[in-house]
Write a protein that binds this DNA or RNA. Structure first.
Length: 478
RNA sequence: UCCUCCUUAGCUCAGUUGGUUAGAGCACCUGACUGUUAAUCAGGGGGUCGAAGGUUCAAGUCCUUCAGGGGGAGCCA
């Protein structure tokens, strides 16, 4: 007998199936009823909604005894129009197979709500909840949106390595990759570990960013994007950081600043619109159970033009706010790296919409960002060079920085100047510098934390709840 | 890593200035109910109060240390 997915039965026109024999399989969310009739809410993961199975308690006495919340069952029966008001169709059971019981005395999930903290302790089972089902379906959809967005625009999906030998990516502490005996590694005469005897013949680590290799792709294929896992061994304990997370890093030859920020804005709007177009059932659930402002916020982002805000102007706005009596924990002046409270003020209180901040002081940004020619007088007054770089941060309400990007410095001498100035270890980076030595071209790119995007799109409060198996300091259970 | 809060039944939480036998809802078991919608109603079982010390006639409650977790901050995506 043909098995139908619940999504099909609830979303497609099944009028032709009414009165026919069908099969559904899935996990029982709740069982209720009386001695005359029993109702089973069955979910198979294809959609957030359950299908209602109606069973005669006399006929299925043995089966119903074994069926509790969490049990996995298969049902054959007649698809009928529901007599109840909560659903259009239901299955009148004629045969029930219990594939797997879920002992209610030990099965941790119940039909009532659980705290996110408790669910994190049962990461292997939390995926069976409505909330995590919704989040994971959205996660899949955002991945599809991202690939579709770039593919439609002629970008190539470019695979950068997860194991890297460069230690200058500059984005944080790295996880070492080694096959040496950690108890007794080979040592050189001076006592240091002899990495030449390691698997790759040199010191290697998990990547913190695919950008540098991505630039190699862009300077040959034109437009590429990466989409893969990234690893940071930072001891960050916040609702916005993971030790293992997924990042999207497009890199485009010949793109200038205005094209870069336009792509950033178009990209985010495309993803959010995709969620609204394809995932409304899940969004409605999350809007009801997790975050009452979710759908409204998503719609407003799609309809709003993001603000372009030069750093120097942003500082002026913040200084004016201080002058008017607004209290910040950290001081504001030209040259400081903005703290979360400053970014939140600009996004949530001043502009009340997403902000793309541009033209940062070179002193607070990475070595590869392109220098602007003009000098900010205010910067010189504060004792800085006054030089800015073509970096961008996209700042979002509630979650802060969602994208960091820049136009890259394509001039070999200027780039080397910055590398020397910042004392960056480039001994293994000759291949990166060759992009500027041979056929160097203007190019730009950005990086987006996939889970940060998901925080925004799902309304979830903690990044550990938008990835199936979060990796954070002291946590790698599942 | 820093600041701060929390840890009581399987889950979510009450528990007063330290004072009899630590409570409720859900879940579970038994029963009732002719179609339920996180069903409802009645009854029942279920606790080393995170761990280890300490103060006190007396500690879930006060103190110290440790562990786990949340929120904020830093680093960033």
């Amino acid at each position: 007998m043909k098995r139908y997915e619940i999504k099909y039965l609830l979303k497609e026109d099944v009028s032709a199936l009414i009165g026919t024999q069908i099969c559904v399989k899935g996990w029982v969310r709740t069982k209720r009823g009386n001695k005359n009739v029993a109702f089973l809410a069955v979910n198979d993961g294809s959609i957030i909604h359950n299908i209602q199975v109606v069973a005669d308690p006399q006929k299925f006495e043995e089966e119903l005894k074994r069926i509790t919340t969490g049990a996995c069952i298969g049902v054959e029966g007649t698809l009928v129009e529901s007599q109840g008001s909560g659903q259009a169709v239901e299955v009148q059971a004629e045969k029930i197979v219990v594939y797997g019981e879920a002992d209610p005395n030990t099965y941790p999930l119940q039909k009532k709500g659980h705290s996110m903290e408790f669910l994190r302790e049962i990461g292997h089972l939390r995926l069976r909840t409505n909330t995590f089902g919704a989040v994971m379906r959205l996660r899949h959809n955002m991945a599809m949106a991202i690939h579709t967005f770039f593919h439609e625009r002629g970008f190539f999906y470019f695979h950068t390595p997860l194991i890297t030998a460069s230690d200058c990516e500059g984005a944080g502490e790295m996880f070492h990759v080694s096959t040496l005996d950690p108890e007794n590694p080979p040592r050189k005469e001076d006592g240091t570990i002899d990495w030449e005897q390691d698997f790759f013949g040199k010191f290697t680590a998990l990547t913190v960013s695919g950008q540098l290799e991505g630039e190699l792709g862009a300077t040959s294929l034109g437009k590429i994007y990466t989409f893969g896992p990234t690893f940071r061994a930072e001891n960050s304990n916040t609702p916005r950081h993971l030790a293992e997370f997924w990042m999207i890093e497009p890199e485009m030859a010949f793109y200038q600043m205005d094209e870069l920020t336009a792509l950033e804005e178009e990209f985010i709007k495309y993803c959010v619109r995709w969620a609204l177009d394809h995932c409304m059932d899940d969004l409605e659930f999350l809007n009801k159970m997790i975050d009452n402002g979710l759908i409204e916020r998503l719609k407003s982002v799609v309809d709003t033009e993001f603000v372009r805000l030069p750093y120097t102007e942003g500082i002026k706005i913040l200084e004016e706010a201080v002058a008017k009596g607004h209290k910040f924990e950290f001081p504001v002046s030209w040259g400081v790296d903005l703290a979360s409270e400053h970014e939140r003020f600009l996004v949530e209180e001043h502009f009340k919409k997403p902000v793309i901040m541009i033209d940062y002081p070179k002193e607070i940004k990475a070595f590869y960002m392109k220098l602007n020619d003009h000098v900010e007088e205010e910067g010189k007054r504060q004792g800085f060079s006054g030089l800015t770089v073509q970096g961008t941060d996209v700042l979002f309400p509630q979650i802060g920085e969602i994208i960091g990007g820049s136009v890259r410095e394509e001039n070999y001498d200027k780039l080397m100047g910055r590398i020397t100035e910042l004392n960056i270890p480039m001994k293994d980076m000759w291949w990166y510098l060759d992009t500027r030595r041979y056929g160097s071209c203007p190019h730009a790119g950005f990086g987006l934390g996939f889970e940060r995007l998901l925080l925004f799109v799902t309304g979830m409060a903690n990044i550990r709840d938008v990835i199936p198996f979060p990796r954070t300091p002291k946590t790698a259970e599942f």
